[in-house]
């Protein structure tokens, strides 16, 4: 009887334990299932505006006189602007670091070099006797060129800058030191053979340049795409975000040299692009000084040597230093 009672007690105890375990499980399940988290919200991608240029207004001034600059002057070397540069101890030049052959950083040496940089070094040499240690190169975008000159933050711009009347209203230019022209770079086998084939196609040019205005004038049905600089256009070209790049032939030669699938359409020049050194409008003495430097470069053959080193191997044409046009007065 006693054993029977003990068994009954055991059974009751076991049942109680099972019930407790069940209750605990239920409580635990309830607790666990009540702790699910809402999914981490996926941030919405920024709806950035399409990187296309607004329609521009082509320059309408007289192209024939646009390249007129101030005649060299022996007294310019003693001018206020030159004195300021000497007092500072170095020349500050706005340049590109990504325009292969004109102004780009050599990945092996880390130095910026090219045809435009040779012009800067020649000017610095004329001021300080040697360029080494006398030049501060500031890498700027095309859009920065005029604002930085106007703010007098840099002494000059040597960055494949086209001389035109619109810009003369804002800054001053040296005499023309190179004659370039706008062309098209396309993908090999793309079927684009001339500007007429650009209808409905995307053409990239750096923001703030005349190139984007020119392509809109010549091919209104082309879709303009902009980048911060020429190499930015090459990245878009390689990533399929543009069908063509349109800018100066000097720049396109440098871009094509970096991409075996790129082809520069050499048949036609869309525009004439006379390059000048940009200077603050109030610093006519510096312009005159620079023009004197260019005259000496013509005489000593250093301009030709620079052209032959940087541009001739890619452009495959002989060229000489443009004849300067003077007559403009500060």
């Amino acid at each position: 009887m006693k054993r029977h009672l003990t068994d009954a007690r055991r059974t009751t105890l076991a049942r109680a334990c099972r019930s407790l375990a069940l209750a605990l499980s239920a409580v635990a399940m309830l607790a666990v299932t009540s702790c699910g988290y809402d999914a981490t919200p996926l941030p919405r991608a920024d709806e950035s505006p399409v990187n296309q240029a607004a329609p521009g207004t082509p320059a309408t001034c007289d192209a024939a006189t646009a390249t007129q600059s101030y005649a060299p002057d022996a007294d310019a070397a003693q001018g206020q602007s030159l004195q300021r540069i000497r007092d500072r101890g170095y020349l500050v030049a706005g340049v590109a670091a990504d325009n292969y052959l004109l102004g780009s950083r050599n990945p092996f040496s880390g130095k910026i070099e090219g045809f435009d940089i040779d012009m800067v070094n020649a000017i610095a040499t004329a001021i300080f006797g040697e360029a080494q240690g006398s030049v501060q190169l500031r890498v700027i975008t095309a859009a920065d060129r005029i604002p930085l000159l106007q703010a007098d933050e840099i002494d000059l711009v040597a960055r494949n800058m086209t001389i035109n009347c619109t810009r003369w209203q804002q800054i001053a230019f040296s005499a023309e030191y190179f004659r370039s022209g706008q062309k098209l770079l396309v993908r090999k086998g793309s079927g684009i053979k001339s500007i007429e084939d650009m209808a409905g196609k995307r053409a990239c040019a750096p923001v703030g340049t005349t190139s984007i205005e020119n392509i809109q004038a010549k091919a209104p049905e082309a879709i303009p795409v902009t980048a911060t600089n020429d190499t930015g256009c090459l990245v878009k070209f390689q990533n399929g975000e543009t069908d063509a790049i349109t800018t100066d032939d000097t720049v396109l030669a440098g871009l094509a040299a970096q991409d075996p699938y790129a082809l520069v359409l050499t048949k036609e020049r869309l525009t004439e692009e006379p390059y000048g050194i940009g200077v603050n409008a109030q610093r006519g003495d510096l312009v005159k000084f620079i023009n004197g430097v260019f005259e000496r470069m013509r005489a000593d053959g250093s301009w030709q040597a620079s052209y032959d080193r940087w541009l001739k191997p890619s452009l495959l044409v002989d060229a000489t230093q443009p004849t300067p046009v003077y007559g403009r007065r500060p």
């Binding site: 292969y100 190499t231 970096q258």
Partner: peptide, 16 residues
């Protein structure tokens, strides 16, 4: 890759 070939476009990819 571009930098190793001496192409300045490498720096643009780096910025990107």
């Amino acid at each position: 890759d571009n930098n190793r070939q001496g192409f300045p476009v490498g720096a643009e990819y780096l910025r990107g």
